[in-house]
């Protein structure tokens, strides 16, 4: 539903300016539905992790005494959820887009491989970001404010609302270098074959490592900080 409306706006824009940002109309529509498919697996509107609720309720005490890393444990849980949501929430919008507008389907298996690799890394990046947001509850005790902030940053700077190649000038360059671009814009460009494969994957791996690294540091810090609540 939302994807269809977004697609019409993008079509109107590309009809006014054909070839804008290196896309043609079909690419723009495809971009719209491919990114729509990312919403569920990457939880782009925020949430997906039970950690904030567990910190608030005090259940996190149990997680911390388990003989497994809290971060990897949560990552495993999230990756499973993402795989399930990719099938259930990801494929239907793409099929809908293909049925209503017709979308570009790459014929080259190499491009599919690049896209799936990029998508998998993007899920990890999205986890890394949401995990950091979740950890902040250890200090803030309430996740509503940061959740809205995260949603604003993620939807806007990832290309979810408009493709990042529409952002003008230096602002566009800046936005393209941020981790949110690596979640949505880069894997979508891999799907469309608009990005150099190895370079793009390298940027994604860089952000995945940075965010997971920060998450690991945060996990260590939260161990000393977290207040176990409940009676």
């Amino acid at each position: 539903m939302f994807g269809v409306l977004r697609a019409y706006v993008l079509i109107a824009l590309w009809q006014a300016r054909p070839g804008l940002g290196g896309y043609d109309v079909a690419d723009a529509v495809t971009f719209c539905f491919v990114t729509q498919a990312f919403i569920g697996p990457m939880q782009l509107f925020g949430g997906g992790l039970s950690l904030p609720e567990r910190i608030r309720s005090g259940d996190v005490a149990l997680d911390l005494v388990r003989p497994a890393s809290l971060q990897l444990w949560t990552l495993a849980e999230d990756a499973g959820r993402a795989a399930y949501l990719f099938v259930v929430r990801g494929l239907p919008p793409m099929l809908l887009g293909a049925a209503v507008f017709g979308i570009v389907v790459p014929a080259d298996p190499g491009r599919w491989a690049a896209f799936l690799a990029g998508f998998a890394i993007a899920v990890v990046i999205s986890f890394g970001w949401r995990y950091l947001i979740a950890l902040s509850v250890g200090w803030l005790l309430d996740d509503r404010g940061v959740a809205v902030l995260s949603m604003v940053l993620t939807t806007f700077f990832s290309g979810m609302l408009v493709p990042l190649n529409l952002f003008p000038g230096w602002f566009g360059d800046l936005v393209n270098a941020l981790p949110w671009a690596a979640m949505v814009q880069l894997p979508a460009d891999l799907y469309l074959g608009k990005a150099p494969v190895l370079e793009t994957l390298a940027v994604q791996v860089f952000w995945a490592v940075v965010l997971l690294g920060l998450g690991a540091l945060g996990t260590r810090a939260v161990r000393h900080k977290v207040v176990i609540q409940g009676g």
Partner: peptide
């Protein structure tokens, strides 16, 4: 944000 989207669209075109 929705307004920002409108502004970005119109940074690329004069009429939608």
């Amino acid at each position: 944000l929705d307004v920002a989207v409108v502004l970005i669209i119109f940074a690329n075109t004069t009429a939608l």
